[in-house]
């Protein structure tokens, strides 16, 4: 069991720790805007987080993962709707963002899916979500929790 955990999250964290030598530990040139999420009913259902991730630097950045104390398994997922109108969801993998470009995580497309919640997501509260980039950089954003029926960051 320990081994499985090691090869998963912990190993990833250790790798980042190893890479985070002072030269690489500086802030990533990434700005996260309009982050929001919906409240959950209990802890069994997965949550979703939306935001815009903007690369303000001169180099491409690649988002490779997420971490948050709120969920054991946070992952970027993508909803796709086919020609027959059937929607499906799958892990989106790595997301590369060119310099000056941004990626929108919004309803019906990309979203951060929070699986195995450690506590319910309560309207009015916030939680930290850390974006992990391929160069070892991290950006942490405080995500507000809106109502279950929220449609966007302004709701």
């Amino acid at each position: 069991m320990k081994k499985i955990i090691m090869t998963g999250t912990l190993a990833a964290l250790l790798t980042f720790g190893g890479l985070s030598v002072p030269a690489l530990a500086g802030p990533v040139d990434v700005v996260v805007e309009s982050a929001w999420s919906r409240a959950s009913i209990g802890m069994n259902r997965p949550g979703a987080v939306y935001m815009t991730i903007r690369n303000t630097g001169d180099e491409p950045v690649t988002l490779i993962g997420l971490s948050t104390p709120l969920a054991m398994m946070p992952e970027i997922h993508e909803t796709k709707t086919n020609a027959e109108g059937v929607s499906s969801m799958s892990a989106a993998g790595e997301i590369a963002i060119a310099p000056g470009e941004s990626v929108a995580l919004e309803p019906g497309g990309l979203h951060a899916m929070l699986m195995r919640l450690q506590q319910p997501m309560t309207e009015g509260e916030t939680f930290p979500l850390t974006l992990l980039f391929v160069d070892g950089g991290e950006v942490t954003v405080e995500v507000p929790i809106l109502g279950i029926a929220a449609r966007g960051p302004e709701d």
Binding site: R45, H77, P107, M113, A149, R151
Partner: peptide, 17 residues
């Protein structure tokens, strides 16, 4: 389905609107 994190709450919110 109620365990649907993205499409279902979004659509039900749209319908509500």
């Amino acid at each position: 389905f109620t365990y649907c994190p993205d499409v279902c709450p979004t659509t039900l919110s749209d319908i509500s609107g």
